[in-house]
């Protein structure tokens, strides 16, 4: 089967890859491009471990076809920190011990970034509903939600 050639932007950098028509973007990110920070928990869109942004929209990359990424902007966990250090969301996840095994963490950080771009001052309920697509089996969500609200406060320049 002929491969499809795709050019896309990932975390601000241009990437070219070849993919099969049925291949998921998650599979290309992980298996072809070595961006294994994005995790696979289900491949059916139900766990959020594979969360990325596509032109700023939060999506499960397991449900996006790799070919659909042509000309789009992809954001993954690898692009969240910067040369100056961790993103406040990452910092707050660490400070609040919002991860145990950590496998849900990349997806949650990408999802939280998308949430706070849309809504810089979410209520607890808003954060819980926005992140309802990101399963965490270890923490019971308590410390995750605290980290998210605290990160929001610190990004607004308030100290929580």
């Amino acid at each position: 089967m002929a491969k499809i050639q795709v050019q896309t932007t990932i975390n601000g950098e241009t990437f070219d890859y070849l993919c099969d028509g049925q291949q998921s973007l998650l599979s290309v990110l992980r298996d072809e491009l070595g961006l294994t920070g994005t995790k696979e928990g289900c491949s059916t869109g139900d766990c959020g471990a594979c969360s990325i942004t596509l032109d700023g929209q939060l999506v499960p990359s397991c449900l996006v076809l790799a070919a659909e990424a042509q000309g789009r902007e992809i954001g993954t966990v690898e692009g969240v920190s910067s040369a100056t250090g961790l993103h406040p969301i990452q910092q707050k996840f660490l400070e609040h011990a919002a991860l145990q095994c950590g496998v849900c963490t990349p997806g949650l950080i990408v999802a939280t970034r998308a949430l706070l771009l849309k809504n810089p001052n979410p209520t607890e309920a808003e954060a819980r509903y926005y992140l309802a697509g990101n399963l965490c089996r270890c923490t019971g969500y308590d410390k995750i939600i605290k980290a998210v609200l605290d990160a929001a406060a610190s990004m607004r320049g308030e100290s929580a």
Partner: peptide, 12 residues
């Protein structure tokens, strides 16, 4: 802060 935390929040 846990020692392995940095690698876990950055996807490494």
């Amino acid at each position: 802060i846990r020692h392995d935390g940095l690698d876990k929040v950055t996807g490494r």
